[in-house]
């Protein structure tokens, strides 16, 4: 899951980024409205966290331009103002949720999870394919009731596959949603991580869940 954070206060942007990264999300940071808008238009993010008080291009304008460009990525606004009209205007302009600064980290993460869930059309924190179950809040992964330990990248990749269960995901799509901009794109890394995942999830089971779609990419689903 890839998230864009737009905030001009470097310290704020930095701790939000670290918090999200600890949850295995890929995070990019833009420090002003214009670059935030450019990022959001060029990468297909799963969630945008937007501060309303930005120099040059205000947050509200970023939001309106995004929606005008038909980019409907779930969006969480951060505002220093608790005033009702600000929040209402933000929500009217197409934001999905808001948080008032200062906020609790856990609340930010919970709302981010809820928005990501909404984005992928599911309504619980539990994702399940056959007997493979992951809890997106605790990052617990089990198969057939057995706990499976994953590294954070492996988990991020699995969560992305599970959120899009039954759909073919190309390598560029996976890169975009699981790795952030700092990542040096050599697509081979995906195949490497897929094989790690297969080792931990499918090996020694009757049915393997991670499928290779020749010529296009990967997908997770129950084998017929």
């Amino acid at each position: 899951m890839r998230i864009l954070v737009i905030d001009d206060e470097p310290k704020v942007a930095s701790f939000i980024r670290r918090a999200l990264e600890e949850e295995n999300y890929a995070v990019d940071v833009a420090s002003d409205g214009q670059s935030g808008l450019d990022f959001a238009k060029s990468v297909n993010y799963d969630l945008i966290v937007l501060d309303l008080m930005l120099p040059q291009l205000p947050g509200m304008a970023v939001l309106q331009q995004l929606r005008a460009a038909r980019i409907h990525t779930p969006l969480l606004i951060l505002t220093a103002r608790a005033e009702l009209d600000q929040r209402v205007r933000g929500l009217d302009a197409g934001a999905d949720d808001y948080l008032t600064k200062p906020f609790a980290i856990e609340e930010l993460l919970a709302r981010a999870r809820a928005l990501l869930r909404r984005g992928s059309g599911s309504s619980t924190e539990i994702l399940q394919v056959e007997d493979l179950v992951i809890n997106t809040a605790t990052h617990e992964v089990t198969r057939g009731g057995q706990r499976i330990e994953l590294t954070s990248k492996e988990y991020a990749l699995l969560e992305y596959l599970m959120r899009n269960a039954g759909r073919v995901l190309t390598r560029p799509m996976i890169i975009e949603h699981v790795w952030d901009l700092d990542f040096d794109t050599f697509t081979n890394v995906i195949d490497v991580y897929i094989s790690y995942l297969r080792n931990k999830i499918d090996r020694g089971r009757d049915r393997s869940l991670i499928q290779t779609v020749r010529g296009s990419g990967y997908m997770i689903r129950a084998e017929e």
Partner: peptide, 9 residues
Amino acid sequence: TITKGETEL
């Protein structure tokens, strides 16, 4: 926001 966020994190 910064002190709260960094400390909680």
